[in-house]
């Protein structure tokens, strides 16, 4: 456990993350009525776990089921599809990418994000619902609370802050340029989907640059790209596409600004992630 190596004895951040995502999923089923189907979640999670099992067998890496569980939960929260098999396909793409698309022992793409973007562009049967979480303040508070737990345990609170700050700055600049009232960028910032993206997707420690400066550059680049996609190209969902499109940039940033590699388990050297 990484906690052993640190003065603050926080448990593995992934436990918090699993708790957070599970809670959000329950809220999604219970209160937010659209599109989320329990059967789809079961399939996504089961397929993710199974793919991880097979991947670890084939690659000889130690088996850890926390990460695929997180990926399965993330897919359940974000991806919508008109056929159940697409959820299984998403899980295979997500977990498979961790084993196949890795350079220097680090996987390049956030697994769930990659699966979503690949399917959005290749399948006619999936979509995501950026408006599903609304802009309610209670939701923002809850997501924020989880974020504090997860991010402080994983020591990636900085990239979430960099990203939110860049995104907010761009929205404020745009509103100023257009002469729009402040309520418009504030409304855009309250989006539940934005918070989930910030706290559980871009801040994934396994796919963010190793150095702090790298993370700052990366977060700002994602924000600028997403802004361009959303407001110039009118593309939705812009955030995921921007993140996945720019993920290879982390490799460059890691070369330019080297720093210690993050690992969920300090005992496994060279940042092997499973």
């Amino acid at each position: 456990m990484q906690a052993l190596a640190r003065p603050r004895r926080l448990p593995d951040a992934r436990y918090f993350q699993i708790a957070a995502l599970t809670t959000l999923l329950v809220i999604n089923f219970a209160l937010i009525d659209f599109g989320a189907r329990p059967a789809a979640s079961v399939i996504a999670i089961a397929t993710a776990l199974l793919t991880q099992l097979i991947g670890c067998r084939l690659s000889g890496l130690p088996l850890d089921l926390k990460s695929p569980l997180i990926t399965g939960l993330s897919l359940s929260l974000l991806l919508r599809a008109d056929a159940l098999w697409l959820h299984a396909a998403a899980a295979v793409i997500a977990i498979g990418s961790k084993f196949v698309l890795r350079i220097d022992g680090k996987h390049v793409f956030n697994p769930a994000g990659l699966a979503i973007v690949v399917l959005l562009f290749s399948s006619s049967g999936v979509w995501i619902s950026p408006g599903q979480w609304g802009t309610e303040i209670w939701f923002a508070s809850l997501a924020g609370l989880f974020a504090v737990l997860v991010l402080s345990a994983s020591h990636r609170v900085d990239i979430a802050i960099y990203f939110l700050a860049s995104h907010a700055a761009l929205l404020l600049l745009r509103a100023t340029w257009l002469g729009d009232p402040l309520v418009i960028p504030l409304h855009q910032l309250q989006s539940g989907s934005l918070l989930i993206f910030t706290f559980f997707m871009i801040s994934d420690p396994r796919t963010t640059p190793d150095s702090r400066a790298g993370r700052l550059l990366f977060a700002a680049a994602v924000a600028v790209t997403a802004h361009y996609l959303a407001f110039v190209l009118q593309m939705r969902p812009a955030l995921y596409v921007a993140l996945i499109a720019l993920s290879p940039l982390t490799l460059v940033l890691d070369r330019l600004i080297p720093a210690a590699r993050f690992s969920w388990r300090p005992s496994v050297l060279k940042g092997v992630s499973t």
Binding site: F34, Q132, Q188
Partner: peptide, 9 residues
């Protein structure tokens, strides 16, 4: 559905 507001049945 709305992308920037919640859509509810």
């Amino acid at each position: 559905e709305a992308a920037n507001y919640r859509t509810v049945k």
